[in-house]
Amino acid sequence: MFDSLIPRITAITASAKDVDSKLLSICELLKKEVPHYDWVGFYFKNEDKRELKLGPYAGAPTDHTLIPFGKGICGQVAESNQNFVVPDVQAQDNYIACSINVKSEIVVPLFIDGENVGQIDIDSNTPDPFTAEDERFLEFVNAEVAKIYVP
């Protein structure tokens, strides 16, 4: 499944659209084409503050437009610089609930010149669907986004 999405991701990042439109197109593509991706969005470091700011996303609206570093899965990834796969969000003490339907989450940091500038966040209504293949694919997506995103 992911192999067929790779050329589509590179086509989006190479397109003439503005960066936010490209990011939104990536979110919409992933939400539509990957059955267990129910909410797909980008969070980016909010200037010099120790918080993340919501960027383009596809899925249900969220109240979580700003997330302090350390808070929730996204905030933990902002500090750890490591992928975080959560098979069961109910088992996480530091989880910020976005929807009662969300069962699992994966967050992969986005690096530019070795600095963690943001992340891609995927919520799934399916329990424990994420594999190492999801991680590698999302790392690829972020590497492509890093080529076009200017912090």
Rank of each mutant, 00 (worst) to 15 (best):
1 M>I: 11
2 F>D: 04
2 F>H: 03
3 D>K: 13
6 I>W: 09
6 I>S: 08
7 P>N: 07
10 T>L: 07
11 A>K: 14
12 I>E: 00
18 D>C: 05
23 L>H: 01
23 L>Y: 03
25 S>F: 01
27 C>E: 01
28 E>W: 07
29 L>D: 00
32 K>L: 09
32 K>Y: 08
37 Y>K: 00
37 Y>W: 05
39 W>N: 03
39 W>K: 01
40 V>L: 03
41 G>R: 01
41 G>T: 01
52 L>V: 06
53 K>G: 12
54 L>Q: 12
55 G>E: 00
55 G>W: 06
56 P>R: 06
56 P>Q: 11
57 Y>R: 03
57 Y>I: 02
59 G>D: 01
61 P>D: 03
63 D>A: 13
63 D>S: 15
64 H>P: 08
65 T>L: 12
65 T>Q: 14
65 T>D: 10
66 L>G: 07
67 I>Y: 13
70 G>R: 07
72 G>V: 07
74 C>P: 11
75 G>C: 08
76 Q>C: 08
77 V>Q: 05
78 A>V: 05
79 E>M: 12
80 S>E: 03
84 F>Y: 14
84 F>A: 08
89 V>C: 06
90 Q>Y: 14
91 A>N: 12
94 N>R: 08
94 N>V: 08
95 Y>S: 03
96 I>C: 05
100 I>G: 12
101 N>M: 06
102 V>F: 15
102 V>Y: 14
104 S>D: 00
104 S>W: 11
107 V>M: 06
111 F>H: 09
112 I>T: 04
114 G>H: 05
119 Q>C: 15
120 I>A: 07
121 D>L: 08
125 N>K: 10
127 P>G: 02
131 T>A: 02
133 E>C: 05
133 E>H: 10
135 E>L: 12
135 E>T: 15
135 E>W: 08
137 F>G: 02
138 L>R: 04
139 E>P: 04
139 E>D: 11
140 F>A: 05
141 V>K: 00
143 A>E: 14
145 V>A: 10
150 V>G: 07
150 V>E: 11
150 V>F: 13
